[in-house]
Every structure is written in C-alpha cells, then in structure tokens.
Design a protein around this nucleic acid. Structure first.
Lengths: 214, 214
DNA sequence: CCCATGCTTGGACTGTACGTCCAGACTGGA
DNA sequence: TCCAGTCTGGACGTACAGTCCAAGCATGGG
C-alpha cells in the first residue's frame, strides 16, 4: 500500500485509489482485480479471494480485440468458486487518453453471506410452506450451455477456433460449477465443446493436478 | 410483572418465564399469548400487537377436544392483521402432570420487517443478467435436505414415524427435482430417509410405473 | 396365540457409465 | 522432412446404478 511507487505500473498508480476504495467499501466479501489486457495478466489485486497475484494469467480472453464502439462494461454475471461460493462479477474496460484499452477492472462480490442472510430472513417468513416448485434448475445441460455461451460472449471466440487454453478455462468453470457430478454430463460437454470424450477427461485431469499446472 | 401473584393463574405463573423469554428474544415483532383452552380466553399476553388482554376471548376453537395422542404443535401458519401486517404463528398445547391440556401457547411473529430486510438483501444478490432464476442449490445434498425438511415441516412428521406414503411422496418430489440425476445421490437419500438403498429403488420403481400407480 | 400378508433389508448380481490408457493421426513450426 | 504437441477412437478396469431374491420383521385378523 505505502510501498515504493517507482516499480509500479502507472496504470496501477492511476486506478489504485478507486480499486482500494471499492475494496474497502465492500469489505472482505469483494475482490477487486486490475488486469492488463495486452499481456492478459493480473496487474494488481485487492482482497484476493483465491491465491492469484500480480503476474498471474488473467484468463480473461482478448478483450482488447473488442470493437471500440462496443460495450465497455460487462455483467453482472455469475461465477462459481470451487468451494461453492457464488460471485457476482462486473468488468469494465478502462481506456487511456487516446481511448485505447489500458486496463480491465473486475469486481467480484461474494454473494454467499448475503444469500445466507436472506435465506435466514425469508425462512422466518415461510408460513404455510408452499411447494418450492418454481426453483429447480430443471435442465443441467442448460447450465452447460450457459457457461460455455458466457465464455464465448466474453472472449468473442466461437466454439470452433478455440485454443487449448480456452477449453481449459471453460472446463475449469464447468468443474467449479460441479457439472461433472451429474450423470452423463461428460459426453454432453464433449459434444458441446466439439471435442472427444477422451480430450475432456485429459484436460480435466491436467486441470485437477496441481503439479502439471503453472 | 412485579404485581401481586395471588390473583394470577397458576398456569401463568408456571409458564410466564418461558413466554417472557420468547417475547424478549424476538423483540418487538413477536407477540406471545397464553390461552385457557377450557374457557377459551386469553390468560396472559406479552408484547400485544392488538388490543387484546387477559380475559378476552381466544378465538382459538376447541383445541381441548383434540386426541391426546395427536399432535401438540401447530404451524407455522399465516395470519392477517387488519392493518395488513402478516404474521407467522405457531401454537403449542401445554399439558399438566396428568397429561391433560392445561394451556395453549401462541407465538405470533410479524413478518413484515423481516420481509423488507430480505428484499433488501436479495436485491443485492439478484442483479445478474441471467434468466428468471437459475439461482439455487449449488449443493445437491442441501437440496435433498431442503426437500425432506420441507415435507417434515409441512406434515409435522419426523423422518422416523413416516409411513410408506410419506416416503413415496418425498421420493416423488426428489425425483421431480432431478435429484437422482447426480451421482451417488441414491445412497444419500436412503440415508437421509433412514431406509435401505433397496427400498429407495423399490419405491422409485413403483412411483415411475404408470400401471402400479392409482 | 398363530398365521397370513405386506414391507423392508442385506446381499448378490447385471448393466451402464465413468475414467484411464495407448497407439495412431493430425497439425504447425524448424 | 522431422519433431513436438495435441486430438482421437477404442480397449479396458472400476465404480456405481439398478434389479432381484430369500429371509427378517411388523401388523392385524382369526
């Protein structure tokens, strides 16, 4: 925080107060990340909720390829962490004086405590318990499509023309969303990703071994 | 509170500490009433939300006619006040040493402030651009507990002492919620229902064959 | 009290899907 | 051309989903 400034990226210097303010405001439940869209790396991170740090890959995709006239603020969209926490995330493309993308700001808010509190309160209210019918995630294959579609929308890259890294990222999200706990999900994912079942398992294994990663 | 005791009903003396404790715990939003099931009158009232007082008619109905072996705790059910406030209410039959109904305890909780707070919190959590509500149950074992718990609360019957029909009903709901599409769910359900895996599959088969049904 | 009936149970068994492994095919780059 | 990295179909072992059954156990009628 109060350390030497000469080593810090000017973009970090420029936006750090904003990021820090947001991080302080939202307390321990929000993570604020500043990404470098060129190198696709994390520039700085406040209140990190995972073990990421500056220099780590962003896994954002090439946002800089986006049309300058296009939207600069994305979300809020949903992310799922491995431990079950649910995040509401927003991203914003920050531009320099020449209107070129200079950094990408992401704010990830952990919804879990809010949802728990909300559940406690509404549980108080439930009188003649009506059937919790409306709320089932009827179709898990929809969830698969949702996650993959979200990634495609984020990166602007269709399922064909995806690199190995893209597939790894998507499988990471699917795995975090516990998609593979349901029967017959792996072949469906393979089909949706236009890839063989073997590849899915291979990438998944690579993703889950801490040794092969990083 | 500190007034003469000679005029007070012994039942009030007996139960007053409990009632007062509940009234204190739930703050200004809960009303605690002690009824006399014989005369159908209010014995005592803490945190009254209407202008009722001791001696007023209870409007409870003849609870004393209940089978001694039947249920002694009712609710929560909904009540509506004239001013629009909604209450969640529970009632309990309090018995004496001879196991005869001696008094009826009612707790009425004003849901309105809780509902408002709940709305605030869920507004925080529900911003995403997603369709209606994909927002539930990351954890399928929680969903199982939720469905079973809901049924127990509805019928007031614990998992032991359940009849075959209860189990059929619960399995129907679980099946509708697609719980059995996830791996290892059946043994978990069997455990939660205090029943063997065989029984689960047996009931499930009975449930899914149109011929054996109705 | 005994027997009949119906439900549950553990265990054995089969089938299906999971996940691993590998040799060969394909790709892009030196 | 070779080489390294990746994907692929298929074979294979394992784990789990479901089925089946003989034996226990409760309930209720005679």
């Amino acid at each position: 925080m109060g350390n030497a400034k000469e080593g810090r990226d000017p973009r970090v210097q420029k936006w750090a107060p904003v990021c820090q303010a947001v991080a302080l405001l939202l307390g321990p439940y929000a993570e604020v990340v500043l990404h470098d869209p060129d190198t696709d790396q994390v520039l700085e991170i406040w209140n990190p909720m995972t073990s990421r740090g500056p220099g780590d890959p962003s896994l954002l995709g090439e946002l800089d390829e986006l049309d300058p006239s296009a939207q600069d603020v994305f979300g809020p969209y949903e992310k799922l962490l491995a431990d079950g926490r649910r995040l509401s995330s927003v991203s914003a493309v920050l531009r320099d004086a020449q209107d070129r993308p200079s950094a990408v700001l992401c704010i990830n808010l952990d919804r879990t405590p809010l949802e728990q509190a909300s559940a406690v309160l509404s549980a108080f209210g439930a009188p003649t318990v009506q059937r919790p019918r409306p709320l089932f995630e009827q179709d898990w294959s929809e969830r698969i499509q949702h996650i993959i579609g979200g990634y495609v929308r984020e990166t602007g890259r269709p399922v064909e023309r995806m690199t190995r890294q893209d597939r790894l990222a998507i499988l990471g999200r699917l795995d975090e969303a516990r998609v593979f706990a349901v029967r017959r999900a792996a072949p469906v994912v393979a089909g949706a990703l236009r890839v063989s079942r073997s590849t899915v398992y291979g990438l998944l294994a690579e993703l889950r071994t801490p040794s092969a990663k990083d």
